[in-house]
Amino acid sequence: MIDREQVLHVARLARLQLTDDEVERMAGELSSILGHIETISGLDLDGVEPTSHVVEVSNALRPDVPRPSLDREVALSQAPARTADGFLVPSPQA
């Protein structure tokens, strides 16, 4: 029910490289999982409000008081590649 093409499409959306073997295997595994998930397609859910969050919290605001943020050197300390003052990424055109 989910074929190689769909797996590749979704993997592209998720920015995930897959080998040919993985595409094959995932197609089978995802089909079996989605087959189980399909059991909710038969339920009568007309008019039922969706629950995105169980806690009733809205507009949880903090006082608008400036406070120190992470130091730049600390924020950059775990970067795989960096410049003097920023994260270094490969060119999108490469």
């Binding site: 769909q6 979704v10 998720a14 995930l16 995932m26 595994e29 999982i33």
Partner: peptide, 9 residues
Amino acid sequence: KRRILIGTY
């Protein structure tokens, strides 16, 4: 990987 793919789908 499986869960990222299911979720994205």
